[in-house]
Simulated assay, not measured.
Amino acid sequence: MTRELKVLIAGTGFAGEGHAAAFRAAGATVVGIVGRTPHVVEEVAARLGIPHAGTDWEKALEVCRPDIVSIATPGGAHDAQIRAAIAAGAHVFCDKPMTTTGPIAVELERLARERGIKTAYAASFRYTPSILHAQRLIAEGAIGAPTEVECISHFNLERNIPFGWSHRAADGGGRLNNNFTHTLSIVTAVLGDRILSVAGDVRDDLGRAPIVEGVHNFATRRNFIPKDLDDPNLAWGESDVEWSYTVLARIQSPLAERPVSAMFRHGGLVPRFQDDHIVFYGDTGAIYLKGHYGSGALHLHDGTGWREVPLPDDIAAAIPDVAGETEQCWHILAREFLRDIRGEEVPPYPTFRDGAVHQQIIDVIRRNEAWVDVSALG
């Protein structure tokens, strides 16, 4: 396929603008954008030079006739948007979480596969340069056979961020949907995607958040925290999602004879004391990556001690020339997705299959059924 590919964007916030820039950089044409609020979508479309702006998704599909739709809305809106896109015959690029429940995600993956629709699932921090570097080193045997992985992060989020989709399970909120999806994608990109078993614990440490009007962009929601939280006229919304989780997993890897143990620990509302990190351990060494998505410096332990290993020149040269790790990762995934649609050979990238697996695992973890009652033991 050599003709120009047309993209329609759903969502006018940080992700919507980021997806538009990524597809343009990859050589596609953004022909339309859809949002909830007329004046917001019109302003974004004018500022980005996008021809069609509207609030009706199905009408936009009919008017724009896109080859690709890019879903950059909260997870609760994805189901209807994806179904309409599949019915229109468009390929689908969707941000995480894929949906709000495992059964919905499984059905959407099946519908896309049966229609021959290509899909991309943007749990995309697997594309940071340091993760790509770790993936290469581990594949080359730098740590021997992998044995375990440790993913630790503490975000210290403001407790009074205005109530919105991130507080509601029905809208795709929760830290599993919006943090674990990335770290799980990172680990499976490095080790292999055959997840054998999981157990987990979740906790809502928040309870409630103030209801504030005018928040349209996830990236700027902190600016809307009320000045007076004791105002008797202030309304509050109740959270029904997890703000902390601990997950254990066993992953079958082609790099190891025995399953690899993985631990994912995240506290959304608590402060960190030492660096967030991801560590891959093997039977002859280890790789430490600084940062909650492992995007900082890479240190290798070769059995004698730790040393920092610089990023290889070819990986450094391939980093998209845009600000922000999130944006860089979207650019890489959009590029690979377009190459695949054009019929070029590309490495595996995350698809709706991965998204459906992730959503089913999140359902399992949220049921909190891993506990064994030992209270009666003497």
Rank of each mutant, 00 (worst) to 15 (best):
V7G: 03
T12S: 11
A15F: 13
A26D: 01
G35I: 02
E42V: 08
A46N: 10
I50Y: 04
D67Y: 03
I68C: 03
G76E: 04
I82S: 06
A85K: 09
H91N: 13
V92H: 11
F93N: 07
A105R: 10
R110D: 14
L111R: 14
A112V: 13
P129D: 01
I138W: 00
G141I: 11
G141Y: 11
G141E: 11
P146V: 01
P146L: 02
T147A: 03
E158R: 11
F163A: 06
G164C: 07
G172D: 04
G173D: 01
R175S: 11
R175Q: 12
T181I: 12
T181C: 14
T183V: 09
S185H: 01
D193G: 10
R194D: 15
D201N: 09
D205S: 08
P210K: 07
P210I: 09
H216Q: 12
F218Y: 09
P226D: 03
D228Q: 08
D231N: 13
P232H: 10
N233C: 09
D240V: 05
E242G: 03
S244N: 12
T246K: 13
G267F: 09
L269R: 02
D275I: 12
I278A: 02
T284V: 07
T284I: 04
Y288M: 08
G294F: 02
L300P: 03
H301R: 05
G305N: 04
V309F: 04
P310R: 08
A318R: 12
C329H: 01
I332P: 00
R339L: 14
E344N: 04
E345I: 15
V346W: 00
Q360I: 08
Q360S: 15
I362A: 00
I365C: 06
R366C: 15
W371V: 13
V374D: 14
L377Q: 06
